[in-house]
């Protein structure tokens, strides 16, 4: 079980709800993934446009909704977005994300830590999207964050575990769940993250923009399970040379 704050989840796969072709496809993919935590975002209401009923199906599936602060460029903006999200969804759970630069969407570590410290004091369950920086992750943990969410690669880049070596250090040191967020482009990336000992992974683009999001959601779920099972089973160590699996006897020497 994955334990975050006061809640337990049987699935270690978190899904982002963005970029699906339509809400129905998103709902089916969430179901196929078996995930129990789904991220959502905020925007200014457009009074002249009809609103999709996004929330009713998610509420029916009994999913923990995790609003994000995407769009915030500073701690001040993120705290404002967090307060809006708390009212809009009536939850104090929050994915804190502050990325001022649209080209790489790298999280701003200074603003993120500042915001996290204040949001924890305001009673939020804070899950910060952050750089794969072991010192920063420790500082976020000490600030009272319920988990840390270091990136594997840039958001939506599908590049996999570019930060692998640093993620290993983060996982080794963490006393809160480590959720690898961003950049996982294939189920094999998710499996690799879980084999490292990550507590969970968050996937959005790789599922939502695949040819068959429902099939891909299922594939990611299997990969996460396989990776976690492998981690629990303890991977055999890599060796520089061959180590025979069959007996190397001279039974053919008679020829």
């Amino acid at each position: 079980m994955l334990h975050i704050a006061n809640k337990s989840f049987s699935s270690r796969l978190l899904l982002g709800s963005g970029k699906f072709a339509n809400p129905n496809l998103m709902q089916q993919a969430i179901q196929a993934s078996g995930c129990q935590l789904v991220t959502l975002a905020l925007k200014r209401l457009q009074l002249d446009q009809p609103r999709d009923d996004l929330l009713s199906p998610l509420r029916e599936m009994n999913i923990q909704l995790l609003p994000n602060t995407s769009g915030a460029k500073t701690a001040k903006e993120a705290i404002f977005a967090a307060e809006l999200a708390r009212e809009a969804l009536q939850t104090n759970w929050l994915k804190l994300e502050i990325h001022p630069d649209p080209r790489y969407l790298m999280p701003d570590p200074i603003e993120t830590l500042l915001a996290a410290e204040q949001l924890v004091k305001l009673g939020f369950v804070v899950l910060p999207y952050c750089s794969a920086d072991p010192v920063l992750c420790k500082r976020l943990e000490q600030a009272g964050c319920a988990a840390v969410m270091p990136l594997g690669a840039a958001i939506g880049s599908n590049q996999g575990l570019q930060t692998r070596a640093m993620l290993e250090v983060i996982i080794e040191q963490a006393t809160v769940p480590v959720i690898i967020d961003a950049g996982l482009g294939a189920p094999s990336h998710a499996a690799a993250a879980m084999e490292l000992g990550a507590s969970a992974v968050l996937v959005n683009t790789a599922i939502a923009t695949s040819q068959d999001p429902v099939g891909m959601a299922s594939a990611f779920a299997q990969a996460v399970n396989a990776g976690r099972t492998a981690y629990n089973a303890g991977l055999a160590a890599a060796q520089p040379h061959a180590a025979a699996s069959s007996p190397l006897t001279d039974f053919l020497a008679i020829l």
Binding site: G16, F20, L40, A41, L42, R51, L54, N68, A88
Partner: peptide, 24 residues
């Protein structure tokens, strides 16, 4: 939300409405 039914709007109030949308 719990204060919406009591909170009186003042003249010249800047009211901003936000909605939940999909996102990662």
């Amino acid at each position: 939300k719990q204060h919406w039914s009591k909170h009186q709007l003042q003249n010249n109030a800047q009211v901003q409405l936000f909605q939940i949308v999909t996102g990662g």
